[in-house]
Design a protein around this nucleic acid. Structure first.
Length: 464
RNA sequence: GCCCCCAUCGUCCAGCGGCCUAGGACGCUGCCCUUUCAAGGCGGUAACACGGGUUCGAAUCCCGUUGGGGGUGCCA
């Protein structure tokens, strides 16, 4: 038995699409699962879109996700082989030259008026010679069936009759991706082709080409269900956030992203969704992948991300958020790192927890203010807290003392008839918000003057 | 138009003929814990698209309908 060989073949577009990332991931998972080889093949036969920067974006995102590859190829380095393969097909009569312009083809189709849209085989027997504006087309069989046993979908078949004679060499002399794809899969000994469902229609062409190149076997195919948006349409660059790099910038952890991507189309029967990558590799199975499209649910991704963030060591978290927060915010977070980490859904959201420590308190929401500051005992509470805090020596300005003072006031003011809660008025006065970090340590960081100022401001506001 | 594919809670996944009065996760939500929030614990909400078969028995198999999606380039 030969070692399985899988490949991820992205076109260099300048970013890695999340759908592509998942294809890469599933290829990689399977390769690692079965001890196979994972090949990265850059499909850059459309030369003007092949630059080191565009390819670098793919490398970066794959690397970020922890997807490593064993071999790498670039199709632009292999044009000679594709040209030779095309020439050979030409020589053997399996392909022919065609000088029809796209307008010609369209005009004939319109004239026919039967709704057909593809190439009509006009040049099949015309003996067109190579020249300006001349392409090479593959002569598809007129009868018979081309199909394969898809690992995910089962048997898929196309009548050869519906396959038009497609272009295999552009008029510029550059072979089309089908040729490169078929030749490389054959030449590189690819055994499993795992890719998006949007490519099923090109599979019969590749299979026919592969045959024409002398192959007698087929690789195993597994066509993945598409990742869709809320409209159930394929994720598009225009309307959706599709770039892996963008998610990275928005503070998602690669482990969370990778883990979430796996759940789009696959789930372990034991029901556990979040688990270490080694365990996923161990359990992953191509044949168990779902057939239906999956919605990319950012809310769920964030939930995964929050869980991965919580599992981070405090010091690791502190380093990871550095690019996302100001130096001031970072310094403010250090003393309360665990509290921030536990509440942080994305790395870029860390700073908001200490906004009120670094800057002025937020302007309170009218409704919250009325509800919590409108209570009869609030003036008493604020006065008492201010008084008790003022009485504190500078060296007693500690988190323990903050808690003792604030909670003490509540306890002191409570009677059998009423329970006085002092925390919320203080919170609103200090932060302007009704929820957030535990107050005690941040109060120390904020400092005596600011704390007292804010409490007095709030108290004054009650009278206004 | 033609070709291909898909169809379980709002969403993702489990289920591969009886264990299903359909399970888990996200979301939403109730209670507990807590003088905030978060986390955690315990509940709740909510689905087998429809119609025919096959079978003693169907979410699971077959056919059709409906609904969605993908493709239909000298892009990949």
């Amino acid at each position: 038995m030969t070692t399985p060989r899988l490949r991820f073949s992205p076109a260099p577009t300048g970013y890695l699409h999340v759908g592509s990332a998942r294809s890469a991931l599933f290829n990689w998972l399977y390769a690692r699962r079965v001890g196979g080889t994972f090949v990265l093949r850059i499909e850059d036969t459309d030369v003007d879109r092949s630059t080191p920067e565009l390819i670098g974006a793919i490398h970066d995102s794959l690397g970020w996700l922890g997807i490593d590859w064993d071999e790498e190829y670039r199709q632009s380095d292999r044009f000679d082989a594709y040209r030779a393969a095309a020439a050979d097909m030409l020589e053997r009569g399996l392909a022919y030259h065609c000088d029809c312009s796209q307008d010609d083809v369209k005009a004939r189709n319109d004239a026919r008026g039967d709704g057909s849209s593809g190439y009509d085989g006009h040049c099949r027997e015309r003996g067109v010679q190579p020249g300006d504006g001349v392409v090479v087309r593959f002569r598809t069989p007129d009868e018979g069936v081309t199909g394969w046993d898809d690992l995910i979908r089962g048997r898929v078949e196309f009548d050869n009759a519906v396959l038009e004679d497609f272009v295999i060499v552009r008029s510029t002399g550059v072979p089309m991706f089908h040729v490169a794809n078929a030749w490389d899969d054959l030449d590189m000994g690819i055994t499993h082709v795992v890719r998006g469902e949007d490519l099923v229609n090109t599979t019969p062409r590749v299979l026919l080409l592969r045959q024409a190149m002398g192959a007698t076997d087929q690789p195993m195919y597994a066509h993945l269900p598409l990742i869709v948006n809320e409209q159930r349409k394929k994720l598009s660059k225009r309307r959706d956030d599709v770039s892996v790099g963008d998610y990275r910038e928005r503070g998602f952890l690669p482990e969370a992203m990778r883990n979430y991507l796996v759940t789009l189309g696959w789930g372990d029967p034991d029901g556990q969704e979040i688990r270490p990558i080694d365990e996923i590799i161990e359990r992953f199975d191509l044949a168990a992948i779902n057939k239906a499209p999956a919605f990319f649910d950012v809310a769920k991704l964030e939930s995964f991300n929050a869980e991965y963030i919580r599992a981070l060591d405090d010091d690791v978290f502190l380093e990871l958020i550095r690019p996302y927060v100001s130096a001031e915010a970072h310094a403010a977070i250090v003393p309360v790192v665990a509290d921030v980490k536990d509440r942080c859904k994305r790395l870029d959201g860390a700073a908001e927890f200490v906004d009120w420590v670094v800057g002025p308190p937020a302007e309170p929401v009218e409704k919250d203010w009325k509800k919590h500051m409108g209570r009869a005992e609030v003036p008493e509470v604020l006065d008492a807290v201010v008084a008790d805090l003022e009485a504190l020596d500078d060296d007693a300005w500690t988190a323990e003392q903050m808690e003792a003072v604030v909670m003490g006031v509540g306890a002191r003011l409570s009677t059998e008839d009423r329970t006085v809660r002092s925390q919320m008025p203080v919170r609103l006065a200090l932060t302007g918000q009704r929820s957030g970090l535990p107050l005690w340590t941040p109060m120390v960081v904020l400092g005596r003057d600011a704390v007292l100022d804010r409490l007095r401001d709030a108290r004054a506001r009650l009278d206004a």
